[in-house]
């Protein structure tokens, strides 16, 4: 393995593909997926359940978080993807997502909404003052021309 890439063993590839293709079948919490000791995690979880500790119990949460933290740490250190992928996430309630709207006006501060038109050529405020988008394009054109001229002179001798 070099610094640039890691080739996975065949077993890991198979596990990876199986996991990716089998999202419906496998139902385990996320901490189990990225654990290098999934069986132990489940064993502790079941044992705490048998003791009558509910899933919301503080003791149960504490014990499991300890097991989870250690497992994740070992898992990351060992790069043990095969074990991480033996089981895939439980049908847990998904956290809320948000949308990136791509509409510059939607959250623009009210005092600027009327002063700038996003559809038109907006005058850009420059540190030196007064530059515009067109001026930038012009500067670019000028740079291009200068570059081409230099290249021509160099090539032409």
């Amino acid at each position: 393995m070099n610094d640039d890439m890691m080739i996975m063993p065949t077993g890991e590839i198979k596990a990876l593909m199986e996991a990716l293709l089998a999202g419906d079948r496998i139902q385990e919490p996320l901490e189990v997926i990225i654990s290098d000791d999934a069986e132990n995690f489940i064993r502790i979880d079941n044992f705490l359940g048998l003791l009558g500790l509910s899933t919301g119990s503080a003791i149960r949460k504490t014990v499991l978080s300890t097991a989870r933290a250690g497992a994740i740490q070992r898992s990351i250190e060992k790069e043990d993807l095969y074990l991480r992928l033996r089981m895939v996430a439980h049908e847990e309630k998904l956290s809320e997502h948000f949308e990136i709207s791509a509409d510059p006006d939607i959250r623009r501060p009210p005092d600027t909404q009327e002063s700038e038109d996003p559809g038109g050529d907006v005058a850009l405020e420059q540190g030196t003052g007064g530059d515009t988008a067109d001026a930038h394009h012009a500067m670019h054109d000028e740079n291009e021309t200068r570059r081409e001229k230099c290249l021509g002179e160099r090539n032409g001798g």
Binding site: M5, I7, L20, R84, A89
Partner: peptide, 17 residues
């Protein structure tokens, strides 16, 4: 994913899921 960097692979696995 097979060629992903090790330190990113776990993140990407979770992302895919």
């Amino acid at each position: 994913m097979e060629f992903e960097r090790p330190m990113i692979k776990a993140r990407q696995v979770v992302a895919n899921i």
